[in-house]
């Protein structure tokens, strides 16, 4: 996913840079009496229309795949309660008591089955981001005090997954982490 995003970006950026260079050079070479583009209004119209259509297609393809609708009509086999706090993640099969928060030492989840993370925070905003074995970000949600975000996910491959905090939460933000084992 991220690789294709980077390539898409580099291609688009390169194309824009080329257009600007080309336009600049055309001005450098232009004689005194050259009149530029013949019918700018019409070109502008087509340019805008094409852009509009491209963005429209993009929106209608991507919006239905937003994370809010992920696996919405299936029943998860496991629920993991996650309470983030400065600077750790507590995770448990049982709901976590905010007054006496304790998590389990390790969490094991089945592969290729739907699991649901119920993510909240006991203090400030945190992020709950799941990284796969090759340290690629595969899914995330925020941990907000007073609210529960439900992130549903199916892990494809067994192995060790890392959880990192992706919302700045104070001076130990960069070491706030946890892990999951997928069997």
């Amino acid at each position: 996913m991220q690789n294709s995003i980077l390539i898409l970006f580099l291609v688009l950026a390169g194309m824009s840079a080329l257009v600007f260079t080309f336009v600049y050079l055309s001005s450098k070479k232009a004689g005194k009496d050259e009149q530029g583009i013949p019918n700018p209004l019409k070109t502008r119209f087509w340019f805008l229309l094409i852009l509009f259509v491209i963005l429209g297609i993009f929106a209608s393809v991507t919006i239905p795949r937003s994370p809010y609708f992920l696996f919405a009509d299936e029943t998860p086999v496991r629920v993991i309660h996650v309470s983030a706090m400065q600077f750790a993640f507590l995770m448990s099969d049982k709901a976590i008591d905010p007054k006496n928060p304790v998590g389990e030492a390790s969490i094991e989840l089945p592969a290729n089955k739907l699991v649901e993370f119920r993510v909240t925070s006991l203090d400030v905003n945190h992020g709950f981001a799941i990284y796969d074995q090759s340290n690629r970000l595969i899914a995330q949600t925020q941990a907000m005090p007073g609210y529960v975000n439900r992130l549903r996910w199916k892990f494809k491959e067994p192995g060790n997954y890392t959880i990192l905090c992706l919302e700045y939460c104070g001076m130990a933000h960069q070491v706030m982490r946890a892990s999951l084992t997928i069997k």
């Binding site: 994370p67 809010y68 919405a72 009509d73 029943t75 909240t120 007073g146 609210y147 529960v148 975000n149 439900r150």
Partner: peptide, 13 residues
């Protein structure tokens, strides 16, 4: 009835 809403508020807030 299995209607999924991606989040909810904690009670007592």
């Amino acid at each position: 009835n299995d209607v999924f809403s991606p989040s909810y508020r904690l009670p007592n807030k």
